[in-house]
């Protein structure tokens, strides 16, 4: 059941990004669940490297878009330029026409540019100058954003945050991993020496098998119970939407696949819950900067398994 290549893929990534097994696993689960990933963290903790290494190992085309405040939608989607030789306009695809896009510091761009990207993410196609062009398959966006309280950011609205399946944080490495990083070889060289473990077609097959992981009615009851709790408990401004429940189930399926199971367990749901609720549930007491892991743990412990 479990694709055998997964071990090698995870090993490769963990060799480059040290001490971050869980975020890496979540990122891979997100990819297998055909969702887009949002990474929020301080600069310099390895967000870009993670995107790079994922593209490399999975054999995906890779483009990076550095979002800035003067960016326009055409900078992402592409632009038509008049070709003097043929006497007609010719479309030059933007950086989004690739399998893995790293949208770096997405909250530095204006809402206009942000929404160009987010619409493409949702539709998996680009409409520019009256013509609709499909994006490649697989298509995966990793967006990074700086913490919202930093200067010069345009926070993404909730509706757009919801288009990201998962939101993870990398955080500082622990001392041992950091030491190894400092003492070890240059990451960029290591990256260049990596070889793809699978083809994009194989990735699509793996995404299909993630979708086929069985979720029993007892498990769906559990997902519903979790959602119902967030909707009735007075702790949150609004409960989980049905789309959030779908996301939770999809990631839990991929998570089970990574564990080599053909069915989802409550543990899978609990494992991915922090990433699913991180950008979706906003506590009423917004000022308390409680970390998402403890919020998720409180939610899990409040809802017994049905």
């Amino acid at each position: 059941m479990r694709p055998p290549e997964l071990d090698a893929i995870l090993a490769d990534i963990n060799r480059i990004i040290l001490g971050k097994e869980r975020p890496i696993r979540l990122a891979l689960a997100c990819l297998l669940a055909r969702g887009h990933l949002l990474i929020e963290d301080l600069p310099g903790v390895g967000k870009t490297t993670l995107a790079h290494v994922l593209a490399r190992v999975l054999g995906l085309d890779f483009q990076r878009i550095q979002f800035t405040s003067d960016m326009l939608p055409a900078d992402i989607l592409g632009v038509s330029i008049f070709d003097r030789d043929s006497g007609s306009f010719h479309f030059h695809p933007g950086p989004i026409f690739t399998q893995l896009v790293l949208a770096d510091e997405i909250n530095r761009a204006t809402p206009k540019a942000q929404s160009a990207l987010l619409e493409a993410m949702e539709e998996r196609q680009v409409t520019a100058e009256g013509k609709t062009r499909a994006l490649p398959e697989p298509f995966f966006v990793i967006a990074t954003q700086n913490p919202a309280h930093q200067i010069g950011t345009f926070p993404l609205p909730e509706s757009q945050l919801d288009r990201f399946l998962l939101k993870i944080e990398l955080g500082y490495p622990d001392p041992a991993a950091e030491r190894e990083l400092l003492a070890g070889a240059d990451r960029r060289q290591m990256l260049a020496s990596l070889n793809p473990r699978i083809t994009p077609q194989r990735l699509v097959e793996m995404q299909d098998s993630a979708r086929g992981v069985h979720a029993s009615s007892a498990l769906i009851d559990y997902v519903q119970a979790l959602a119902a709790h967030t909707r009735t408990a007075p702790r949150w401004q609004a409960g989980l939407s049905p789309r959030a429940c779908l996301a939770l189930l999809a990631v839990a399926r991929a998570w089970a696949l990574l564990d080599g199971r053909d069915h989802v367990l409550p543990e899978d749901v609990q494992g991915v819950l922090p990433g699913v609720i991180a950008h979706r549930l906003r506590p009423i007491d917004d000022t308390a900067h409680t970390d998402v892991e403890s919020v998720a743990a409180a939610l899990i412990e409040a809802v017994p398994l049905p």
Partner: peptide, 9 residues
């Protein structure tokens, strides 16, 4: 066993 705990955990 905690009521919220999955079997494998």
């Amino acid at each position: 066993w905690q009521a919220w705990e999955g079997p494998l955990a």
